[in-house]
Design a protein around this nucleic acid. Structure first.
Lengths: 337, 337
DNA sequence: TTGTATGCGTTATCAT
DNA sequence: ATGATAACGCATACAA
């Protein structure tokens, strides 16, 4: 509101705005003590540069756009994404970037993510999405604006992914190591991540010499307890029941947990279970849910680092696809057979 | 990246930039068909205004700052706040405003929320906080920048609150109506919201003629299952046990749920319980958690409407404190006595 | 070392 | 009805 400008500082110091600008930007061609004194008065006057003016002049805004292309209101509400965004924000802020939420419209104007990003002069984009085949995402990726994606790698773009194939594999091996041979898997929505997990599941079962009946692998929905409940009912009504059910994610497991209780099965005595994600909920449940913890904090942080590099060193920067490992969280829901 | 400018459109149309600007802004002093043709070519060239230039000139950015002054990483991760932010975002976007996350620093520079907001030319601020006594929040509120707060009302500022006194009262009355007389209450961190809930609890108990022993009201921590577990243990070890325990929030109830199970009490046969918030988790648990649903969607939406009014009609706008009612969600965790 | 002048893209004022 | 021009706040090439 006050909005002190360079001009006011210049008047207060009896110098030109150019000199003030140089002092504030630690330019080399300015007297040390004069620069220092200018900085002091600038500070005392509560000066902060005007981001719009600076963006207009320098052609970069020190602002990163965040796109949310997530389904079924699993946006900010999903702890996995919320944590990634939170750690991304922290790291971006440390590097001097603010985050602006970028949507597909503004008022009555419908615009693509790219158009919106250009409108806001975003220096880079953090693409948080599930449906990467969204044309507006494709357009974004095809442009020359620096960006980083999560859990999906486009050609020529940096990406940070949870290691889905190996994570799934690790979890299957853990379950197998406790003696389980009849392992069922409820997978989530058929997005890229899911394909990899299914791949990891079958591959690992194969390596372990397990042959999994077709009806042990059923489709579910991420973050949806109801669907997991239904899938659980289906699995437990099979004549040859599994000894362990792997759920698509921790949250949807809640549905399975309740259904198993309703059916009179206790966990892990009668049936073992695993989740996926490692959200804080899994440590609140009893027994603690055995799950695979995806290191969302590391994912967000790394994504921010990659994006900042891409923005600040466009020439020497090389695209990377970083895979962040996770860990099996041994809870108490998988019983030794 | 392409960044079509007014100038390019002007050249393409053989008119001046002033004329183009008028056409695009539907000014009155311009020929109808010429304006229309200019708009067509602008569209065909993929023109979008440069937000920075516009902000510089008009002194408003159509950008709203969001401050997150939340403890213990209950930021985006808390479903209540995440939902409020989500609905706020949707409504703000509809009115043509983008959201920028405002922190207390940027790079190595430490700045107050106000300084950061001025730096980014925010037209208004959405204050999402728990600790309203934070000096940086006070500074923000004392300034003349339009803002709206949630669950705490400052003098001369708009606020949207969940009706904490009455909500708590409604929940107590519901429990009482099912025959409970020995009601315990684990309250959360001692912030303003909590004070009101405690007030609502005691007031209603008084009106209902219940005298609550001191050791039935114990301090807990929001969003913290461990603390709720400890408090539960304490309550259940009393010689004269309560018949119902009211938890600070749905999430922290998870700790109580597990502890009760560990102690061999089943819900609701041996002990009744309630949560607070009405997050989606409560409907995933079995039995469904009886809780008080705070209408986070309505809160966020209303907050955005108030803020946009404050920004766009600074003169005729009157500060408001809107109380959003909620509803008891009858789950299955309170047994009829 | 310091200051002058120019332009970023837009809107607004004032001529024409 | 249309256009030249100035100004928003800042950074920088260039002149002094």
């Amino acid at each position: 509101m006050l909005a002190v400008t360079l001009k006011q500082i210049a008047e207060a110091c009896n110098v030109s705005t150019a000199t003030v600008s140089k002092a504030l930007n630690y330019a080399s061609d300015i007297g040390a003590e004069k620069a220092e004194s200018i900085r002091r008065t600038a500070k005392s006057m509560g000066y902060f540069p005007n981001a719009a003016a600076r963006a207009l002049k320098t052609n970069h805004s020190r602002n990163i756009g965040v796109t949310f292309s997530l389904d079924r209101a699993i946006g900010l509400t999903h702890e996995y994404f919320a944590q990634i965004l939170e750690s991304f924000q922290l790291e971006a802020e440390t590097s001097g970037y603010d985050l602006t939420l970028i949507s597909r419209s503004l008022g009555k104007t419908v615009m693509s993510y790219l158009e919106h990003s250009i409108y806001r002069n975003c220096d880079g984009i953090f693409v948080l999405a599930q449906k990467f085949e969204d044309p507006s995402i494709i357009e974004l990726v095809s442009s020359k604006i620096p960006l980083v994606t999560i859990d999906y790698a486009f050609n020529g773009c940096s990406a940070v992914s949870s290691d889905n194939v190996n994570n799934m594999s690790g979890l299957v091996r853990y379950v197998h190591s406790l003696g389980h041979r009849k392992i069922a898997f409820i997978y989530g929505d058929k997005i890229d991540v899911t394909t990899r997990r299914i791949e990891g599941f079958y591959k690992t079962c194969g390596e372990l010499g397990l042959s999994i009946p077709h009806d042990y692998v059923v489709e579910g929905v991420y973050h949806c307890p109801e669907t997991s409940a239904a899938a659980t009912r289906k699995l437990m009504s099979l004549t040859d029941r599994p000894t362990c059910i792997m759920y698509p994610d921790d949250y949807s497991y809640i549905g399975g947990m309740n259904e198993l209780d309703r059916l009179g099965f206790s966990i892990p005595e009668d049936i073992s279970v695993t989740g996926f994600d490692g959200i804080s909920l899994s440590k609140g449940l009893r027994p603690n849910l055995t799950t695979f913890h995806q290191d969302s904090g590391a994912i967000g942080k790394k994504a921010a680092q990659l994006l900042v590099s891409a923005i600040e060193q466009p020439d020497k920067y090389k695209f990377e696809h970083v895979i962040i490992p996770g860990t099996v969280w041994e809870g108490g829901t998988v019983k030794k057979q």
